[in-house]
Design a protein around this nucleic acid. Sequence first.
DNA 1: CGTAACTTTGAAATAGCTCAAAAATTGTGG
DNA 2: CCACAATTTTTGAGCTATTTCAAAGTTACG
Lengths: 239, 239
Amino acid sequence: MIEKHLMRLRARDNVSAHEEQAIRDAMLDPVDVAARTTIIRAGQLLSTSTMLLEGLMCRYKDLRNGERQITELHVAGDFVDLHSFSLKRLDHNIMALTPCRIAPVPHDRLTRITEEHAHLARMYWFSTNLDAAIHREWEVSLGRRSAISKTAHLFCELHVRLGLVGLADETSYDLKLTQVDIAECLGLTAVHVNRTLRDLREQGAVEFSKGRVTIGDMTKLRRIAEFEPAYLYLERQHE
Amino acid sequence: MIEKHLMRLRARDNVSAHEEQAIRDAMLDPVDVAARTTIIRAGQLLSTSTMLLEGLMCRYKDLRNGERQITELHVAGDFVDLHSFSLKRLDHNIMALTPCRIAPVPHDRLTRITEEHAHLARMYWFSTNLDAAIHREWEVSLGRRSAISKTAHLFCELHVRLGLVGLADETSYDLKLTQVDIAECLGLTAVHVNRTLRDLREQGAVEFSKGRVTIGDMTKLRRIAEFEPAYLYLERQHE
DNA sequence: CGTAACTTTGAAATAGCTCAAAAATTGTGG
DNA sequence: CCACAATTTTTGAGCTATTTCAAAGTTACG
């Protein structure tokens, strides 16, 4: 159940059996949520954090004119709002983009973990810092990359992140998003995302169709994206 | 010397005399750095974090074509790279935008703080989460706001953040940035920033001239920006 | 199997960019 | 403290990447 979360942690550091047990003990029973459900609203006082076991979720903010900016995508194994443990309320909403399975983790149990498992506490601090690093890379995409480059970049990032938890093979992965969702990640209109996807497809770099990403030419895709995975901190901390 | 850092912390939570002393004990002697100096490069292994005592710094990433995206501005009192304590190396550069005074804080001393001052450790975790919240708000600006709106938003954010450390009055503050710097924050060209500043000035909302921001009409400025300060977490955690 | 959601395409509009040059300001060495 | 060189700001004119609006085609699902 928390296998993907453990895969994600162990991609970057060691997790002892003892720590693994502490994580398991902290979790409440899993809950299923329907696609397109906003599970957390900005401002709401929170007393649990949410681990994503299966599915895709996002953090997003709405503007007054109805436009929306997705600020991060979350894949299985992610803590979608570990930062609520110290922030208490979020500055953004969290929504399930696909049907999801989640497990709540009460903040008081996280407090115990930080008290009794210093190394695990550091890993979780690291994890929130990794979210910030992803935000920074998205700022670069949103501020400076062309439509085709930012679109390619998103596909590169998700290929790596889904690969870490066993949800991507060498050249493809499932991604049950609409073109509207992608537009809301990239700060584009859905119409332009559509034309950009066609461009990427016609170049043979990557195809996105029916909820599946198929990378035709990884070298070309990464070149278009200027993708440098260092911001995902893939090297191991110990050993 | 660390007065501004304490003001910043105390704006959101209590800091005991004991904790204050622990912070003082962790700091090394201050160092002056010239404007336009990149003090930390992406990828470099770090063993200290840097507290900004005076001046303006930024986090930025370069693209291959020479363009640059600034992902966050730092004001006096900020830890500019507290996240290096858990990340070990950064995914971005850090540069002084003005002449700055900084104080290094060795990571092993931060380790002691986390071991001996649980509440302070939580405040510092909170602090890195606040940086992430600022990144998210910038994603919204970069992805969805118009040029005039994102420019106004930046002036609103800095007014609040500088106000917290006593560097802004009701309607104005020093901001020794060039229009190029602002363009690199906002994902615009310098030319367009210039025209946008004229627009804001002619509307009477805000004037930016000779390194000083003067807010002519706060209500109008915040309306143009759709500025909602909740993302800066200004309410106090305790009491 | 019908209907809503999503994708695709076309044509026209525009926000912001590029290039270029002039004006203003700032910093510096003498 | 001046002179002048470098940097920064300002403006103009033309351009283009992306948006907007509208409609047709396709897919998914109850």
